[in-house]
Amino acid sequence: MRDKSDFVAYVEARSPRLLRTAYLLCRDWAQAEDLLQTTLVRVWRAWGRVGEYQDAYVSRVLVNTYLSWRRRFWRRELPTDAPPETVVPDDRIGMIDERAVLWAALGRLPPRQRAVLVLRFFEDLPESAVAEILNCSIGTVKSQSSKALAKLRIDPEIAPPAVASRMEGELG
């Protein structure tokens, strides 16, 4: 059984990183802090039983708390999300725009798919660990990850300008 003093040490050591994960899920720092603290309250209640895999346990609570919040929303996007800037074709800082539209496209992913990407590519967790956190099979993690990446690729706002122009031409 873990000591409660470990909990304080854990919070101090790990909360900056957990806050970043929470932000990547909610995309709003205030909500991320709220999500983190809600998660830590729940973790505290079970701390005596957590065992040695604290990070995996906390990640699971964090993601599940986030998903349970999101299920109560009708719409996937929070209104606080600023709309992405329109890509200007001759923009010299196109790289920044490219990232902005990719960030915006990530925001349009279903919460569960976004969570898979964050766990895989920010937390660098193997598929098996993601499966355990999300309480699904490894196959589901693979398919969700693949669908999410496919959505990002085909998102019209991140299609290469040449493709976008061609589409406009065809429509015109």
């Binding site: 003093s5 304080v8 701390w47 005596g48």
Partner: peptide, 12 residues
């Protein structure tokens, strides 16, 4: 118990 180091106490 949360603030002071000490032996584990189950929340339940």
């Amino acid at each position: 118990a949360f603030l002071l180091p000490g032996p584990a106490v189950s929340p339940r």
